[in-house]
Computed example of a mutant assay.
Amino acid sequence: MELQFLGTGAGQPSKQRNVSSVALKLLDELNEIWLFDVGEATQHQILRTNIKLRKVTKIFISHNHGDHIFGLPGLLSTRSFQGDVGPITIYGPSGIEEFVRTALKVSRTKISYSIRFVELAKSGLICEDKGFRVYTEQLDHRIPSFGFRVVEASHPGELLIDKLAQYNVPNGPLLGKLKNGEKVTLADGTVLDGKNFLGPTKPGRIVTVIYDTRSTPSIARLAKDADVLVHESTFAGDEQKLAHDYYHSTSVEAAKIARKDNVKLLCLNHISARYMGAKGKKLEKQAKKVFSNTVLVNDFDQINIPMKGSEK
Rank of each mutant, 00 (worst) to 15 (best):
T213P: 05
Q45P: 05
V295E: 03
L75A: 13
T49Q: 10
K58N: 14
T49R: 11
G147N: 10
F5A: 07
T89E: 05
C267T: 02
K308I: 07
Y246P: 00
H244V: 00
K55M: 11
F5N: 10
D129T: 08
K179V: 09
D129S: 06
M307N: 14
F5D: 04
L283C: 11
T213Y: 05
V295M: 13
E137Y: 09
F99D: 04
R221C: 07
V184S: 05
N262M: 06
L186E: 04
K25I: 02
F148M: 15
I143S: 14
N18Q: 13
I206S: 08
V184N: 03
I305W: 11
F99P: 02
G172T: 04
Y113D: 05
Y91S: 06
I303P: 05
N298M: 11
S62E: 06
R221D: 12
L72W: 04
G74M: 10
L160A: 14
V134G: 03
V191E: 01
K183V: 15
L174F: 08
I271F: 03
T8H: 06
A10C: 13
I59L: 09
D140T: 12
G189Y: 02
F99G: 05
L3M: 13
N196T: 01
A103K: 05
V150L: 15
K25G: 05
S218F: 04
V263K: 00
S21N: 06
I206A: 07
I115H: 00
E119W: 01
M307F: 01
V22E: 04
S112K: 05
L24Y: 09
T42W: 12
R149T: 13
E232K: 02
P203S: 14
R259S: 08
L178P: 01
A165E: 14
T136D: 07
H244T: 07
A243H: 03
G74Y: 09
I33Q: 01
T57G: 07
Q302I: 13
V207W: 04
E137Q: 15
A223D: 10
D84G: 10
L283I: 11
K52D: 11
D301C: 08
T57F: 04
N168Q: 15
G237Y: 00
F146Y: 15
H141G: 02
G124D: 01
G172D: 01
K256V: 07
G237D: 01
R274I: 05
G237P: 04
H248Y: 00
S80F: 13
P217A: 11
Q12I: 12
V118Q: 04
L3Q: 09
D238S: 08
E232V: 05
Q4Y: 09
V85Y: 10
L75E: 08
I51S: 11
F99M: 14
N293G: 12
E137F: 10
H248P: 00
D301V: 10
G92A: 10
L164C: 07
I90C: 01
K177E: 13
S123I: 00
L222P: 02
N31A: 11
D67H: 15
R149P: 11
L283M: 12
P173Q: 13
P306D: 12
G157E: 07
D37F: 03
N304H: 09
D212I: 12
Q12V: 14
E137C: 03
N168G: 06
